[in-house]
């Protein structure tokens, strides 16, 4: 198959997927569980791919994703709350000091830009660290930014530790799908460009990469900034999905959730991250919900089922994945036409 035909078929499949999502929304109604899962899954897919760019493709073990999402979510919310409602939202801060609003799509872009700026600043000292130290430093950043945003003195901007709400949210499930698809598309283009090859070279062997004339710091910085940009956009989408934003929700547990998606999907596989995020969200929000409620079959009370048991099962599943299925769903391969063809070839032999 020629490259151009493949691309056309790929885009057609994507369009078909969008159509299917749209039809599901029409059929099931906006508030059904499927739609919730699809919305959140699309948002998490973008965030997971942005983290994979860093952890899977550039080999930088960063745990700052929740921090950049937080920056993105707040940037979005702060600038899009309608003027009329600012007084009510910022009730403890006399309506806040930001007395204007910008269109929501501009705010999403701005969310990415602000997160990227933070990344550029933090990257300068932090990216000189290696592996575990980098993880600790970025994790520290995420925790610090969470505390700073809740700082009372910043209240006129961030509303302190109070909720931000009444900003524009999703009107259709297609919105997060389209934004995520475009962003993931851009990340894919970057990964397959000469810079993406340099990222992978750094991941495989830093010393050899440097000997090939690749400026380690500049390329790590680039990966970090781009990853954070899309984490920021993802944060804005998450804010739209949730309808309210509060800094306290962006705990390091959120980063671990995303790291989990990346690992389950396969480090270094974009399609793996996307699939894993829908799977993960479906499991945690929907399929495994029953584990959290008591269940009676006749007079028999099923043991163990109670609030919180879901997390126990989840942890066990994760351990199983890490022990026996370490490369995740996709390893470092991508979903492609060739994959199916080769499988068919093997099967027919």
């Amino acid at each position: 198959m020629k490259k151009s035909t493949r691309m056309i078929i790929g885009f057609l499949l994507l369009a078909l997927l969008f159509l299917a999502v749209w039809l599901i929304e029409r059929a099931m109604g906006t508030n059904s569980m499927v739609i919730t899962v699809l919305k959140k899954g699309a948002v998490y897919a973008l965030i997971a791919v942005s983290m994979n760019l860093l952890n899977g493709f550039t080999g930088l073990f960063s745990l700052g994703q929740a921090g950049f999402m937080l920056v993105g979510a707040y940037t979005y919310a702060v600038f899009t709350i309608p003027m009329a409602k600012r007084m009510a939202v910022y009730q403890y801060y006399q309506g806040g000091i930001i007395q204007f609003e910008i269109p929501f799509f501009l705010a999403i872009l701005l969310a990415g830009v602000v997160a990227a700026l933070f990344a550029a600043l933090i990257g300068m000292p932090v990216l000189r660290l290696k592996s575990d130290y980098l993880a600790i430093a970025t994790l520290g950043f995420a925790e610090i930014i969470r505390a700073i945003i809740q700082y009372d003195k910043l209240g006129p901007i961030t509303n302190g530790s109070n909720l931000l709400k009444t900003y524009p949210t999703f009107t259709t499930v297609l919105f997060p799908f389209v934004v995520s698809a475009v962003c993931i598309g851009i990340i894919l283009l970057l990964i397959h460009s000469t810079y993406g090859r340099a990222f992978k070279a750094i991941r495989d062997d830093e010393i050899a990469a440097e000997a090939m004339g690749i400026n380690l710091f500049r390329h790590k910085q680039l990966a970090f900034v781009v990853s954070s940009f899309f984490a920021g956009v993802g944060g804005a989408l998450l804010a739209m999905y949730q309808g309210t934003v509060q800094a306290n929700a962006f705990k390091s547990a959120m980063t671990y959730e995303i790291l989990l998606i990346v690992v389950i999907g396969g480090m270094g596989s974009v399609s793996g991250s996307v699939m894993a995020s829908f799977l993960f969200i479906a499991c945690s929000e929907w399929w495994m919900r029953f584990l959290d409620s008591e269940l009676m079959i006749g007079t028999f009370k099923v043991p163990l089922l109670r609030s919180g048991f879901r997390m126990v099962v989840f942890s066990i599943l994760i351990m199983l994945v890490v022990l026996f299925y370490r490369r995740g769903i996709m390893g470092d391969r991508e979903l492609s036409f060739d994959m199916f063809r080769r499988r068919k070839g093997v099967a027919s032999k």
């Binding site: 460009s193 000469t194 810079y195 992978k200 090939m212 004339g213």
Partner: peptide, 12 residues
Amino acid sequence: LIGMHLRRTSNP
């Protein structure tokens, strides 16, 4: 190809 990256004229 990675060896050629350093002679690039393109930006990200």
